[in-house]
């Protein structure tokens, strides 16, 4: 299968701490790739390096065979990689709809004069933001709350809004960091169904998740990290049986 995102010996050190160490992955286009590992394994750090939030210490990141190592986050987003955050980072004092509208930033081009004189460009952009924003909010099931401040949303809804906002960027890859954390079963199922639907429409998804039932059902391929290193990779079946993985999670039998 065609590769869409690839890393070569990617490393991220914080001083002496090796948060991500020599991780090479190859994500095929159109799949759902899972990333699992115990707490502190470097999963989120890996996301941060992939999206340019952190500069890598060593190694390379390729997106569609283009070297994007250490690109700025805004540039990575523009190329088509979008993400959500583990510790929700919504624009709290903005409405739900406005949160999503920010996502259209790279696809609209209103300049200062357009905004002041309400030119054709402004009206066009405004319509795009409004229509597609509504669409996305409906998709994640937040239509009733679109005028609400993001900070007033329930936890599960905040996670859904983060996904809607990330989708507004119109990405080729979506990186979701623990999208179902703190959600009840129904909400979790909704998110899983949404991710499956998006994937069936051609979106590549990389997901960090602790809920094994979600990971095992959803993912086509799983990467397991421990202490910043790749300890296993493969289909859910392979990973489930891998002794390294069992050891990392449960410890070795003495």
């Amino acid at each position: 299968m065609e590769s869409i995102l690839r890393t070569e010996n990617l490393c991220k050190y914080f001083g002496g701490l090796k948060a991500v160490q020599d991780v090479s992955i190859n994500v095929s286009k159109g799949i759902i790739q899972g990333i699992i590992g115990p707490n502190g394994a470097g999963k989120t750090t890996l996301f941060n390096v992939l999206t340019g939030t952190y500069n890598s210490t060593k190694g390379k990141v390729y997106f569609k065979d283009r070297n994007i190592t250490n690109f700025k986050p805004e540039k990575v987003t523009k190329l088509g990689i979008s993400r959500t955050f583990q510790n929700i980072k919504l624009f709290k004092n903005m409405s739900v709809l406005d949160n999503v509208k920010i996502g259209f930033h790279t696809q609209t081009k209103t300049k200062m004069l357009d905004a002041i004189f309400h030119t054709k460009t402004y009206k066009n952009d405004d319509r795009i933001c409004e229509e597609r924003g509504q669409e996305l909010i409906e998709r994640v099931g937040l239509s009733d709350l679109k005028e609400e401040f993001a900070s007033n949303l329930a936890y599960g809804n905040q996670r859904k809004l983060e996904i809607a906002r990330a989708l507004a960027v119109n990405p080729d890859i979506l990186l979701v960091d623990e999208p179902t954390a703190g959600m009840n079963h129904i909400e979790t199922r909704n998110v899983v169904e949404l991710l499956e639907k998006l994937n069936s429409e051609g979106l590549t998804v990389i997901i960090i998740e602790h809920d094994m039932s979600v990971i095992m059902n959803l993912c086509h391929s799983i990467l397991v990290l421990n202490h910043g290193q790749k300890i296993s990779e493969g289909s859910p079946e392979q990973v489930r049986r891998d002794e390294n993985v069992i050891e990392a999670y449960l410890g070795r039998e003495e």
Partner: peptide, 13 residues
């Protein structure tokens, strides 16, 4: 509201 999130949305902060 959140500079890092703004960057992640493609805003050249």
């Amino acid at each position: 509201e959140d500079e890092n999130a703004a960057k992640a949305m493609g805003v050249e902060t």
